[in-house]
């Protein structure tokens, strides 16, 4: 099966694991949770943190079980802590 490269932009405490940006390969037709799995494989130290993160695309959250559309860049959003 073909794979595609997805760029992931990271914020706040996630930079400790992945820097400001990283990239992973996912299979065509994979869901966004496939990106989370690929990130766990990329840095197993982030395994505990990743389940609490959400993914945003085009400035909106997406469901992890949704298939990845045409986008090449996604935003990995750790739990909010503003205020």
């Amino acid at each position: 099966m073909d794979k595609k490269l997805i760029k992931i932009v990271c914020f706040a405490g996630l930079r400790k694991y992945f820097g400001s940006e990283t990239s992973v390969f996912v299979e065509d037709g994979a869901s966004y949770s496939g990106v989370i799995d690929a990130l766990k494989a990329l840095n197993p130290e982030a395994t505990e943190v990743l389940p609490s993160c959400r993914i945003a695309v085009n400035e909106a959250f997406v469901a992890l079980n949704e298939p990845i559309k045409n986008e090449n860049t996604i935003f990995l959003i750790p739990p909010s802590s503003g205020g």
Binding site: F11, G13, A56, P78, S80, S81, G82, G83
Partner: peptide
């Protein structure tokens, strides 16, 4: 304020 603190992608 609850929504902003809990949902908006801002980090302290």
């Amino acid at each position: 304020i609850d929504k902003v603190k809990n949902e908006v992608p801002i980090w302290k």
